[in-house]
Nucleic acid binder design. Structure first.
Lengths: 225, 225
DNA sequence: AGAAATTTGTTCGTATGTATA
DNA sequence: TTATACATACGAACAAATTTC
């Protein structure tokens, strides 16, 4: 027997899949939905909460429920928590981050536009001239974020965002260990320069070399590069 | 002002993060939770629905609400729908699948155990001897699934599962286009043989060659292999 | 085995805060 | 400003499944 609130979720899902509901559209009011599906209003609300949480709809008191226009924030939010629950260990987190950045580099060298290249160079400059640790972290993160964005692949972008959330919010202790395992500051700046110049000059070899230096994984995947 | 049901979600989340709640544990009853958080039982239930949906808890009528033991199924379930909502196009789906399998291959050649190698060979044999199309698809999928599992990286495994869901359930039309864009049957069988033997013999070059043949992307990423 | 108590699933009624015309 | 529509929230009650005695 299907539960009442699942009926609601299925109903909205189907209307989206069939193309009856599009982003921005207003759903039927809770009372109407309850009547249509012959369930109580509370059950409707339980179903809508689910849809709201994963970013399908947004609820506005006094106005109505609407199909979301932007899933991005909620998605990486939810995704990072799910990753946390799966109990990802340090090895897997590190592997996945390398994986995303490597694949992003493959695409970024061909797809980065002028604006992204400019942002990369600004961050690189900021990184090399940074005085406070806070500034360094800011530009460091900026470089990696732009790199992934330049891949123009939403799977990579979303997962990278989720991974950042995961490390910042749920396993921050792991983050410090991961970072401290990296190269010294001078070498790290050199690695970032290679990485940025690789993208800017559309030089894949150089970009990959930058990543390799950055993560310091000369050992196992040497053959790949 | 924080909404009532969000208070519930935060509360459970915090208890998990702080280590007070572990997988398998029973939550306080809905009535007790309502009293503790000074919200109504309906609001508690709305919060619990969210947690149930993303796989944090499982609810059993007559018994109680429990922290989930297995997130896996629900996670790829939710994830695939979120991917669908983001409106992933064919290019991004194809790219992501290649990414996952390539990275999985890098890890699988070093990590596949005897049981997984055996399953790979059984599927390969089944694929070559298959008569019906249904059989072929079964073993084809089996090979790729085991390959990804052998990577022993849950990020890759979960995302591959979600991607499979996405293609099967939400964008099946795209799936046929993607598949039809692949090699002929004979070449495909050869590619699978290379792929499987690469893992079984811990021969990275061979495995990657199999993937390259399989997806037929000689063009752009030639340099990588 | 069976009855009672407990707990989630579901519904209805009501009151309140917010947005919109 | 007023009136209406709508989501938010609460409380009480009963049904259905499970646990306990």
């Amino acid at each position: 027997m299907e539960k009442s609130y699942e009926k609601v979720v299925q109903h909205v899902k189907n209307e989206i899949l069939s193309g009856s509901l599009h982003p921005g559209d207003k759903l039927a009011t809770e009372r109407v939905l309850a009547e249509q599906l012959t369930v109580s209003r509370n059950s409707v609300r339980e179903g809508l909460r689910i849809l709201e949480n994963i970013g399908v709809i947004t609820s506005q008191q006094g106005s109505g429920n609407y199909i979301s226009l932007n899933f991005d924030e909620t998605m990486s939010e939810v995704l990072s928590f799910m990753y946390f629950l799966k109990g990802m260990d340090e090895r897997q987190v590190t592997e996945f981050r390398r994986f995303i950045e490597r694949e992003a580099m493959l695409l970024a060298v061909k797809r980065a536009d002028r604006e992204q290249k400019q942002r990369l160079m600004i961050h690189l400059d900021g990184l090399e001239k940074a005085i406070t640790e806070q500034d360094r972290v800011l530009h460091d993160k900026g470089i990696h974020r732009v790199l992934v964005e330049a891949s123009r692949n939403d799977f990579l972008i979303t997962n990278y965002q989720a991974l950042t959330n995961l490390m910042d919010r749920y396993i921050s202790s792991m983050r410090t260990r991961i970072i401290s395992g990296m190269q010294s500051r001078n070498k790290l700046e050199y690695a970032h320069r290679m990485l940025v110049e690789g993208v800017v000059e559309s030089n894949l070899e150089k970009g990959l070399a930058g990543l390799r230096d950055h993560f310091g994984y000369i050992e196992q995947y040497k053959d790949l590069f």
